[in-house]
Every structure is written in C-alpha cells, then in structure tokens.
Design a protein around this nucleic acid. Structure first.
Length: 600
DNA sequence: CTCAGAATGAGTGTAGCG
DNA sequence: CGCTACACTCATTCTGAG
C-alpha cells in the first residue's frame, strides 16, 4: 500500500555514507545537549539508548519491545553490530516499511496497542476500516479515545505528527523510541533521521527528484518523501544540531527595539540579507504569528520555513497600538514604503475625543495589544467609583489600580472619571481596516472583537509587502491561508497591487462572509475562491487550482496563535497545540506550491 | 440557542539595582 | 553577574440573562 517512494528497491545501502554517520551521531548529540525544550524527555531518551547495548539479548528485547519481529531484529544486529543502535533501528525501519504491506492482522493490533490504545478498541477499529488503511484506523481510534478521554497526550501527539505530514507508522515508532514524554522536536528529528536513512537508498544523481511526489497518491498518505524535502530536512537537522551544541546562544532572541529590518520612522541599519537557498522563491511566502510564544517555538517555525530568520516587529511603530509579532518571509527588504496616509501614531491622534478626559497621571501614549476580549462595563464602573471620590488626582494607590486595569484592558478615557473599552470600529481603524469592515451581515459584537483581535495589523504587513508592487505591476495570484477577515488582501489592495486570483482558506463562516463582502464592495476585478479548511487543500486541489491560472506569486498566512498566546490560561500548549499545530499545514501547503511551481 | 460578563495565572522578557 | 520586581500577552470556560 505505501507508496514509499523514497525507499528504493536498492538493497545495497551504503551504511558508511556521510548521511548515515550524521544520523549515527545524531542520537547522541540530541540526547546529550538538548536543553530546551523538554529536558525530561531528553533524559529518558538518553537513558533508553544507554540501557541498550549492554548485552545482545537485552538489545534484542529492546527492539522487539518496540514492535519489531525478533528475527528481523537479530538480522539487523548482525548486519550493523551491537554498538550502533541507531543504525540497527534504521535497518529495522527500512525492513518493516517494506514488509508493512504484508503485515498480519495481529501485528497490526499489536502496533496500535503499542501506541497506547485499548486492545478491544483497536480490534473494533480494524474491523471497521479493514487492515489496509492504517490512517483511517488511527483516525477511528483517535475518535474513540477522544470520546473515552483516554491517553489524550499520545493521541494529540499522533494527530500532530500526522498533520505535519508524517505517517502513522513513522510517528508511532518515533514515539516508542523517544519515550512518552518526548517533545515534538525530538520526535520529528528522530523521524527525519529515519527518513534520511531511507532516502539515501535512492540513488543520488537524479536532477528532477520531486516528480515522484505526483505519480502516486501523495495526499492520501501525506508522506513528504521526496529528494528535496529530505535535503531540506537535512539542513534543518544540521542547524538544529548546531543550535543544540551551542546551547542557548543560538536561541532566537527578540530584538529591542522590535523593529525588524526597519520601520518607516526608523529606517533599518540592515538593508540586505542573504536568504538560505531553499527559501528563495517562487513563490514568495509570508508567515506571521505572535512574537511572545513559548520558548523554542520560533526556532521551530524558522527551522520549518527554510531557516529564514524571523523578522520581529511591534506594530506600535506603525499605529497607536502595540502588536508584537514575528514574520518569516522571503521577500526583498529593500525599498519598502508605508501605506499612505500614515495612520495616527498616538492614542490622542487616533482618538481625539479622549484627549479632553485623559488625566495627566495616565502617561500612556500607545495602547497595548488589541486582543479578542474587551473589558466589561462592571470594570469601568468600578474604576469610576474608585476615582470619583477625590477632588483632584486620586492617591497613588488608586492611580496604580486604575492604570493597571486600563493597560490590561486597553481602556480609554471617554468622560469625566469614565473609561471605556474600544469600540469595534475603533479597533478596525487601529488595525488599518476600513470602517465597518466587520460590521453587519449577522456578526455579533463579540465576534467582531474576536475576528479583529486575531487579525493582521494592515499597515505593518503592507509595509513588508510593499516591495511586491514593482515586482508584479500586473497584479498577483495569492494563496491566503488562515485568511481571517482578509488582512493580507486589504493590505495588498491598499498598496494598489491588483489581486488577480485569490485562493482564500478560512474556517470561520463569518470571516468568509466579511471577506466576500469586502471583495464585492471594493469592486475587485480578480477572482476569489473560498476554501473552508486548510486540511482540504491537498496536492490534487492545489494542482487543479494552479493549473487554471499558473501558480501563486505569494503564499501568506498567520496560523492560529491560540496555543502560543500568553493570554491563554488553559491550553498554551505550544506548536503542538490543537489549533497552533496548523502551522504545519502552512508548511505542507507551501512545500506543495513550491514543488508544483518548480515542476512547471 | 446566542450573547455578554466574569473568573481563570503562567510564561516570558526586561529594567533596575547592588 | 544575579537577583527582584514589574509589565505584558492575536484566550478559554463557565454562567446567567434573554
């Protein structure tokens, strides 16, 4: 069943190749020097690898315990020697990939049980889906376990890895090998090493390697198994190794001031940069997310986006509200220009009516980040009551209370002793959207705040995208992922860049309506295609779309920040969180677009 | 059912200071 | 350099009113 295009028929695998040696060393370096994230998992994985090799039989047990047949293990050990467990594992992976098509039902059951699912559940799932399709079996199992609330962590990890494009088999083996507490980074690196071992099977000199992707059913198996991908992963891994060896020095640090490669008011010192070769378009891409994500997240994002260094920018240099975001893109950075007219840069300029009521002891000139929730009426009432007892300035303690709340909720002064949250249209204006962009059409006030809070700051993004105007005088074809209320589209439109064909992927119906509305109101001459779910966007669909208008010039999107954002008390799970892991769909789709573009 | 209000801190980075 | 205090954060979940 498995296409296994990277696992060639050639049995004469060169175990001494350079790649292999890197893999060989990799386990050691990763377990000895990975400090963040997940020191626990590292410890357990180091323990696992040191516990084997003490005796031959123990070694066999080890691999048998991972689900490999004893005979296969024995042969692999004979072939590679006892010392090198990593090489043994590669051999086993290779062999089991080959024999997976003929795997027996009981082996399959064991396989899923080994993943932590209940035996009865597994049997049922296999019966339901047949033995052939492990993917659907897994989905069924995940559904069961989601219902049963059993093993949510493992289930999530598997879903996550599968979303990244790995097969269930690869993922589950990695999970077994790295232990239950392994971080996603460790798991992906493990899988990567295994894939590279397999990729080395394919002879190297081919010049048009990616074509294999399209001859078998890629989207069905989601396997990212082509030469360029492996090359890419190799670079990523080398970089990761380097970062781990050098410790925290290589961790991505936020710039201070957060102006990226420059802002209109503070031109950059850096005007040139050298992009990694793999990052160079077409297409151009532009990825956005919150700057203050948990540690390690931006390293991973950068690593998955061709090692491009993120550009961290605070939108307070573009408008009257802060918005600290990281942008990973391969756009030129010379000759940027801002949208005109320049938006107001202070609260007083943005909201002139507040100036009259603004007390001298509130020294704010900028608002904090515009979020998805607003302060309540009760809070503003408490603040009024706290202040109105005093003739002049309230005591410092009261001032502090009021200021803290004002900063936390972005309250502004709208009357004597009266503060209030921003109105939705004020948020629209601050973010660079046309007035009433999100108003009407059946959207509630709460939803407006939510959609706006999740959006781009248009002036900031437009500044970065402005370089496209000269590059594409005739307009661009745009693939907009996680479009939301259309921040990217609005930015390009305001830059005067014609939108020829826009494929917009957005799961929220109200947001799609907002976008469609804007599209029609602004008399666009191009073509807008809606897609609901990024996960529907597979190779077939992309090829079909791209063949009709000849590829995308720009792939843009900010994937969900839910599990990265500091405001999230409940599920700040990092990139492997339920929503935030959609980042890997951005990567997957960008890779596909890149592939299709280079082929044509 | 929708909608709005209220309660729910941790994680991270930074400025200041000895 | 380490320490401390402080500031800030594209949110989720529950509850009650209508």
């Amino acid at each position: 069943m498995d296409g296994d295009s990277f696992c060639g028929e050639d049995d004469n695998f060169d175990w001494g190749s350079e790649d292999e040696r890197e893999i060989e060393n990799y386990g050691l370096s990763s377990s000895s020097s990975l400090t963040v994230p997940g020191a626990e998992a590292t410890a357990s994985s180091a323990e696992a690898s040191s516990s084997v090799g003490s005796s031959g039989s123990k070694l066999i047990d080890h691999f048998v315990g991972m689900g490999f047949p004893e005979k296969m293990v024995a042969e692999a050990i004979q072939e590679n020697g006892e010392e090198n467990t990593d090489l043994i594992l590669e051999t086993l992976l290779k062999c089991s990939a080959r024999s997976s098509a003929s795997s027996s039902g009981s082996k399959l059951i064991d396989h899923f049980i080994g993943m932590g699912f209940d035996a009865e559940m597994v049997a049922k799932a296999i019966q339901e889906n047949g033995e052939g399709n492990t993917d659907t079996i897994l989905e069924t199992l995940l559904t069961y376990s989601a219902i049963a609330k059993s093993e949510p962590k493992q289930g999530n990890t598997l879903v996550f890895l599968s979303r990244m494009g790995y097969t269930v088999e690869e993922a589950s083996i990695a999970m077994e090998r790295c232990g239950p507490d392994a971080t996603i980074a460790e798991l992906t690196d493990f899988i990567c090493a295994a894939q590279m071992a397999k990729a080395a099977d394919a002879s190297f000199p081919e010049e048009k390697p990616k074509l294999k992707l399209f001859d078998d059913n890629y989207p069905k198996h989601k396997k990212r198994s082509y030469y360029e991908y492996d090359k890419w992963k190799k670079k990523q891994r080398l970089r990761l190794e380097k970062t781990m060896l050098q410790g925290d020095d290589e961790m991505i640090r936020l710039p201070n001031p957060m102006i990226g490669f420059g802002v209109p008011t503070d031109p950059a010192i850096v005007t040139r940069r050298t992009l990694p070769e793999a990052a160079i378009g077409p297409p151009y891409f532009y990825y956005e997310n919150v700057a203050l994500a948990p540690k390690g997240v931006w390293s991973t994002i950068s690593r998955f986006l061709y090692d491009v260094e993120p550009e961290f920018v605070d939108s307070k240099y573009f408008c009257a509200a802060a918005r600290k975001r990281g942008y990973v893109h391969n756009l030129p950075i010379q000759n940027r220009f801002p949208l005109l007219p320049l938006p107001p840069h202070t609260v007083h300029e943005a909201l002139p009516l507040t100036k009259k009521w603004w007390p001298s002891w509130d020294t704010r000139t900028k608002l904090n980040c515009l979020q998805t929730c607003i302060g309540s009426a009760k809070l503003t009432d408490r603040i009024r009551k706290a202040i109105e007892d005093y003739e002049g300035d309230p005591p410092l303690s009261v001032q502090k209370f009021v200021l803290d709340e004002c900063r936390k909720w972005n309250l502004v002064w709208v009357g004597r002793n009266k503060v209030a949250p921003l109105e939705p249209d004020e948020v629209e204006m601050l973010l660079g959207f046309p007035r009433n962009h999100t108003r009407g059409g059946g959207i509630s006030r709460t939803d407006r705040y939510k959609s706006l809070g999740n959006s781009f700051q248009v002036d900031t993004v437009a500044y970065h995208l402005s370089v496209l105007k000269d590059l594409f005088p005739g307009g661009i074809n745009l693939l907009s992922l996680f479009s939301g209320i259309g921040g990217a589209e609005v930015a390009l439109h305001r830059l005067g860049i014609r939108l020829k064909n826009v494929v917009s992927v957005e799961i929220s119906e109200v947001n799609r309506n907002i976008m469609r509305c804007w599209w029609e109101q602004t008399n666009q001459t191009g073509n807008l295609i809606d897609i609901v779910d990024v996960q529907q966007l597979n190779a077939d669909r992309l090829e079909q779309l791209m063949s009709s208008f000849g590829g995308f010039d720009l792939v843009i999107g900010g994937s969900p920040c839910n599990n990265l954002a500091g405001s999230n008390r409940h599920h700040r799970d990092g990139l492997e969180g339920k929503e935030s892991s959609l980042f890997f769909d951005f990567c997957r789709i960008l890779d596909l677009v890149k592939c299709i573009m280079t082929r044509n």
